[in-house]
Simulated assay, not measured.
Amino acid sequence: MGSIRYVEIAEALRAAIMGGEYPVGARLPSESDLAARWAASRGTVRQAVATLAAEGLIGSRQGARRIVLRQERKHSFSELNSFAQWAEGVGHEVSSRFLSRVRRPATVEEAERLAVAPGAEVLAVLRLRRLDGEPVMVERTAYAQWVAAAVEAMAEDCRSVMDGLARDWGVVAQYGEHLIDALPAGSEDARLLGLRRGSPLLRQRHVSANRTGRPIEWSDDRYRAGSVTFSVSNSAVTTPLARRTGEG
Rank of each mutant, 00 (worst) to 15 (best):
S60H: 14
Q62E: 10
A225Y: 14
V122Q: 01
Y22K: 01
R65V: 09
Y6I: 03
V45D: 02
R140D: 12
W38T: 05
L201Q: 02
A53L: 09
S227F: 06
E112Y: 11
G2S: 13
S60P: 00
W38M: 06
G89D: 01
E110S: 09
R97H: 07
L52G: 01
V49A: 08
R70H: 09
V171F: 07
L179H: 15
G133H: 08
L80F: 06
R159D: 07
L195K: 02
R191I: 13
A120K: 04
Y143F: 06
A115K: 11
E110F: 02
V125M: 05
Q71I: 04
R197D: 10
R130N: 12
E109N: 12
S100M: 05
E188V: 15
G133R: 11
G43I: 01
G186H: 05
P29L: 14
S30N: 04
R129H: 02
G25T: 04
G186A: 07
L165T: 03
P184G: 06
V125W: 00
D221A: 15
E21D: 12
L192S: 01
E55P: 14
D132E: 11
S96Y: 06
A185P: 00
I67R: 10
A117Q: 15
V94P: 04
K74T: 12
V45T: 02
G119F: 04
E247I: 09
R42T: 11
R191V: 15
G194R: 10
A153M: 10
V90Y: 00
N81Y: 07
S235K: 10
R203H: 04
D33M: 15
F230N: 03
L192M: 05
E79P: 05
E121Y: 01
G119T: 03
Y22L: 12
S76G: 07
P240D: 03
M1R: 14
R130Q: 07
A50T: 09
L28K: 10
V94S: 09
G198F: 02
S187E: 13
V24E: 04
P200T: 07
Q47A: 14
S233H: 11
Q71S: 11
R70A: 15
E177V: 15
V116L: 10
V172S: 11
W146T: 00
P215M: 00
V49R: 15
W146K: 00
R5T: 07
G133P: 00
A185K: 01
V151H: 00
V138I: 08
V228T: 10
A190G: 01
A84K: 07
R214A: 10
G20Q: 01
V68R: 02
L192T: 03
T44F: 02
G2W: 06
I67P: 12
E109F: 00
V147K: 01
R191P: 05
S199K: 02
S199A: 15
Y223C: 11
D168P: 14
T229G: 13
S96V: 04
G56T: 04
V122G: 08
F98Q: 06
V116I: 14
T141F: 06
V108F: 09
W86D: 14
E134V: 07
F230I: 05
